[in-house]
Design a protein around this nucleic acid. Structure first.
Length: 583
DNA sequence: CCCAAAGGCCAC
DNA sequence: AAACGTGGCCTTTGGG
């Protein structure tokens, strides 16, 4: 946490309330008075879902109802009329509810909250000190290895919820943490819903694209004809008849034998070389990647019933960004996005936040000059207009250099120019970097904290601290320290941007639900989320209203996090039939 | 046989 | 010599 920064205040629900943001995100969870450290006022209804030996137990305001698995969806549906906050493990129960046609408005995800509270800034540390148990995410890496928990045991949801509420209430900034947990919980609902609905995917379009570029489909152990032909050209050009172009080691040897000096076989390096092998080799790499990552095998594995259903991992990244499992859904190459096609009579509303991270930095640092540069539209153009740098490209490279900690190259050169014009913003990332370099932790706006320095780094530090330490060890310690500085520097911005995005999609899913009637997949609904970008699948007639909803949700996410600080979050919004037509 | 590391490339 | 952040996933390679 950048504790020295006076502007880092608790942005509690009162922020939302004062701006009239109706929210499934922070909501009025325990009322805003709680943030003043006084007392609960408008207590929200909660429905705690507990697994039992043969079914599920729902406790709504102290009233217990036991249901068998088969009756669960009906019970939830009946209780949902009161719009309680569902306290549960979303991934454990919500997919089944969606299958049964039941959608809920609000939740508190016990598993995600556990993960956040284990490592959140300003908590008393009671949850951090707990031994790992079934509420901890088994997928997440743990350094202690063994679990003391017996997985046959039934987890006590009410007890865990009580513990979490107490931890939040006793924290330094309960409003911020509550917002973080409810936003992330809303994200979990959205993730399950996006998996349920699926991204519309035209197998025939994808297959046509593959056949056009690679040739007819071949068995898995064979190269498609286009790759076979290119491999032949490469072997001839290098005079290496047995070369396997898929092997970097083999390729590097062949290149050197042909008198081409390279440090690697990366496309970027090869493209700078003047030799007949370069063209077929680069083409081979491009097509081989397509074949391996998004070829027929991927199609067979991931596309069913005209839908792509990735498994989203909410908070799968240390910064709070999402990940996905196995499908590569967060690396869909531009090359194949033409296969994402709206259903007949429907549209894709594609929206991405423009220069999200610099804007988040401006808000975090309360840097009015940078906020002014981003007023209206393109923040990089605004930086040019400010006179800091000459071109938009320079503004972008310099800004990213500042966010990533560039010290050399064009980015490194431009950072000082930005620092002169935007001292507050640049000082914030510098402080974050310094804190990391000296082995500390930093936190996002809402309190997500970096992990502590690794045991390995600590060991190197100890080794480097002794009198007349080995020069190699000293170098390694310095290098690790710098690495951590770049990590903490980027963490505050990337992590807060992830929080903005959570608030955005949480508010958006509420707005989309209220735009129409009918079942979840009959209404406009989210089908894809990628860090700072969403796709909504919407009946054509509602597309304009959806575009407005997406824009308004972005505005409200900004207010939720940054209150009345005047930083804009403009979007690029496109209404299209094919994903690749989006601006 | 399994597994992890290395090299590479895709996304933001 | 390294040098600009967060990831996923593929193939090759070499060790147990």
């Amino acid at each position: 946490m950048l504790r020295s920064r006076p502007s880092l205040r608790d942005p509690p629900q009162s922020t939302a309330v004062s701006h009239g943001v109706r929210s499934d995100v922070g909501g009025a969870f325990y009322g805003r008075r709680m943030d003043g450290g006084t007392r609960m006022t408008t207590r929200e209804r909660t429905a705690v879902v507990q697994r039992t030996v043969d079914g599920l137990r729902v406790v709504l305001d102290g009233v217990t109802q036991d249901v068998e698995h088969g009756g669960f969806a009906a019970a939830v549906s009946a209780l949902e009329v009161d719009r309680p906050r569902w306290v549960w493990d979303t991934m454990d129960v919500y997919p089944r509810l969606l299958q049964a046609g039941v959608r809920v408005a609000r939740s508190w995800d016990l598993r995600l909250a556990r993960g956040l509270l284990r490592r959140a800034a300003g908590t008393p540390g009671g949850i951090a000190a707990l031994p790992a148990d079934g509420w901890d995410d088994s997928a997440a890496g743990r350094d202690d290895g063994a679990l003391s928990f017996d997985f046959g045991e039934l987890l006590d949801a009410q007890r865990e919820f009580d513990r979490q509420i107490a931890e939040v209430a006793a924290s330094a900034r309960p409003g911020a943490l509550r917002l973080l947990i409810t936003a992330e919980s809303a994200g979990a609902l959205a993730a399950a819903e996006m998996h349920h609905a699926g991204l519309p995917w035209r197998r025939d379009v994808h297959e046509q694209l593959l056949e056009g570029l690679l040739g007819p489909r071949v068995p898995v152990d064979r190269r498609p004809s286009a790759l076979e032909r290119l491999a032949g050209d490469i072997r001839v050009a290098l005079g290496a008849p047995a070369l396997n172009p898929d092997s970097p080691a083999d390729l590097a040897r062949a290149l050197r034998s042909a008198g081409i000096e390279v440090d690697s076989t990366r496309a970027q390096e090869l493209s700078r070389i003047d030799h007949p092998v370069v063209e077929p080799l680069l083409e081979y790499k491009r097509l081989a990647r397509l074949h391996q990552a998004n070829g027929w095998h991927w199609l067979d594995t991931w596309i069913a019933d005209g839908r792509f259903r990735p498994d989203y991992i909410v908070s799968g990244v240390v910064t709070g960004r999402w990940a996905t499992r196995n499908s590569g859904a967060m690396q869909l190459p531009k090359q194949i996005r033409s296969a994402v096609v709206a259903d007949p009579g429907w549209k894709l509303v594609v929206a991405d936040a423009a220069q999200l991270e610099p804007r988040v930095l401006a808000g975090l640092a309360q840097d009015r000059a940078m906020a002014e540069a981003g007023r209206g539209r393109d923040l990089y153009a605004g930086i040019v207009a400010s006179g800091a740098v000459a071109t938009r490209a320079a503004a972008k490279v310099g800004m990213l250099g500042a966010l990533y900690g560039a010290t050399s190259g064009e980015g490194g050169r431009l950072v000082p120019r930005l620092a002169r014009r935007f001292p507050q913003a640049l000082a914030l990332v510098e402080r974050a970097a310094k804190e990391g370099e000296r082995g500390g932790t930093v936190a996002t706006l809402l309190g997500r904290e970096t992990p502590p320095v690794s045991d390995r780094q600590r060991a190197v530090d100890r080794e480097a601290a002794v009198f007349e330490a080995d020069e190699r060890v000293l170098r390694q310690a310095r290098s690790l320290s710098r690495d951590r500085g770049r990590f903490t520097r980027n963490f505050v911005v990337q992590g807060t941007a992830a929080e903005w995005a959570l608030c955005w999609i949480a508010d958006l899913r509420r707005r989309l639900w209220e735009l129409a009637e009918g079942s979840f997949t009959e209404r406009p609904h989210l089908v894809y989320f990628l860090h700072d970008e969403v796709i909504v699948h919407a009946p054509a007639g509602s597309a304009v209203a959806v575009a407005d909803a997406v824009t308004e949700a972005a505005r409200d996410a900004g207010r939720l996090l940054f209150a009345d600080f005047p930083i804009d979050f403009p979007l690029d919004v496109s209404v299209v039939d094919h994903y690749d037509e989006a601006a």
